[in-house]
Design a binder for these strands. Structure first.
Length: 415
RNA sequence: GGGGGAAUGUCCCGAGCGGCAAAGGGGGCGGACUGUAAAUCCGCUGGCUAUGCCUUCGCAGGUUCGAGUCCUGCUUCCCCCA
């Protein structure tokens, strides 16, 4: 998406240059506010999982840039809205999370924000449970509900689509918009926040909030959305074979995170460097221009920078080194993911079981199939016999290397 | 309130004359080719202590040697009429 507007403020300039901007309710007006300094903006995050995943990196980076350009970022935890459970999507009797679970999730998510935002100097994290749970239905209807135009909500794309397709749109879901809109007004009232950002799918909700603000006498509010991120081949970002690409280290080790970025498609490298690193644009332009196999250098830079920001420079370097040894030298790197077993159990264990225990395959049946397809390797030799067992000699220095395909390696350690 | 449809492999979509571990796609995984890329081609895509055994077609019963398929009841969803 090319944005024609030429901003005067650093905030908008950086966001536009780097490709964060999809739509804005009023570029000129927002630019002015940003230029005046101290712009406060927020983004909402769900608390449905104990960690955010890469899909959330884009909004997180927007908050980070806001702070870097002199603004005040607010990370809003959806503790209140998560309690209702977002009903969008159709099937699934979705289980409601308990309040304790939500609190735990919040703790996990907070760890990530600590790395990207500076809470000592202005950034804040809030939870909409603080005000939403205290709402009284009658009061809410009287003071807030009357300002919502159902006509208008019916005309929103997300709603129209559902109606046209005869898909159910539950009352809760409809109310979700109202709560989210109310959040915006409430956050403005409490923190003087003028801007809500989010993914492009949030446009309708944000604009509803602006509308509500106007009717409730709030100052002019603004919306800014980021493009929905897909890879160049159209897949949604953030899912890989191993599952979601989590941001918390205890759910995905730095090595795995590094690998995720390293495996970026060629045509995504430049875009991702702009979005997910803070390298200067001319440097990125240089990296992006690399052709052929040289583009791999750009991918390494991307992986290093992105991992360093999340897990620290040291962890990034370790991951890079592990990858270098593993892929470029074919040497066994002792920092690969490791699964430890008692020696008594490990030696004599069937290969099928071993790969299951290492977490590379889900069942012995899958292991069998992978062997047929030549996908499993033990110490870099293809496993040919599914009945083979691990012997003491397989453990060099107590460690055997199990591989699935070319990229996934796990060390099995006999203790 | 009346009438007519629908629910399939625990990722999704979807075929399925009483012999079914169940067609076909998408997605995913693996192999070949490469550069840890893309594109392309090929294979795989219920579980297990495995020439066998066990569990799967909304739920519960029934008919049958044998049920995803036929019958009955129930649940949920959709459409038309009121």
């Amino acid at each position: 998406m090319t944005v024609a507007f030429s901003p005067k403020s650093d905030f908008l300039r950086v966001l536009i240059e780097r490709g964060f901007v999809h739509q804005c309710s009023d570029f000129a007006g927002l630019d002015e506010k940003a230029l005046a300094g101290g712009l406060t903006a927020y983004i909402g995050f769900d608390c449905t999982a104990p960690s955010l995943h890469v899909g959330s990196m884009l909004p997180i980076m927007m908050l980070r840039w806001l702070q870097k350009t002199g603004g005040k970022p607010i990370a809003l935890m959806g503790g209140g809205t998560t309690r209702v459970g977002d009903p969008s999507g159709k099937d699934e009797a979705r289980k409601l999370l308990t309040i304790e679970q939500i609190e735990q999730n919040k703790d996990g998510i907070r760890q990530v924000f600590d790395k990207f935002l500076d809470f000592q100097s202005g950034a804040i994290m809030i939870d909409n449970a603080e005000w939403l749970t205290k709402l009284n239905y009658i009061d809410f209807l009287r003071d807030v509900g009357r300002h919502f135009s159902v006509n208008r909500m019916m005309s929103m794309d997300s709603v129209k689509m559902r109606l046209e397709r005869d898909q159910e749109l539950s009352f809760i879901e409809f109310n979700y918009m109202c709560l989210q809109a109310y959040d915006f007004v409430e956050i403005n009232r409490r923190y003087g926040c003028l801007l809500q950002m989010g993914g492009s799918d949030q446009w309708g909700n944000i604009v509803t909030g602006i509308d509500l603000g106007r009717r409730m006498g709030a100052p002019q509010l603004y919306a800014l959305t980021a493009p929905l991120l897909t890879t160049a081949s159209g897949a949604k970002m953030g899912k890989t074979a191993a599952g979601a690409v989590w941001l918390n280290a205890d759910m995905l080790a730095p090595y795995g995170y590094w690998q995720f970025w390293r495996n970026t498609e060629d045509s995504d490298v430049g875009r991702f460097l702009r979005l997910f690193t803070e390298l200067p644009l001319d440097e990125i332009a240089r990296l992006e221009a690399l052709g052929g196999a040289e583009i791999n250098e750009a991918k390494k830079v991307l992986a290093n920078e992105a991992t360093a920001m999340l897990h620290g420079r040291e962890a990034a370097e370790t991951a890079a080194e592990t990858a270098r040894k593993t892929f470029e030298e074919g040497v066994l790197a002792d920092s690969l993911p490791t699964v430890a077993l008692p020696a008594s159990e490990a030696i004599g264990m069937g290969v099928l079981t071993a790969f299951v225990r290492a977490g590379l395959v889900a069942s012995t049946g899958e292991a069998r199939r992978q062997i047929k397809g030549g996908g499993l390797r033990l110490n870099d030799d293809a496993v040919a016999d599914e009945r083979a067992a691990l012997v003491a000699g397989d453990f060099r220095d107590g460690v055997a290397k199990l591989s699935l395909g070319k990229k996934k390696h796990v060390l099995l350690k006999a203790e």
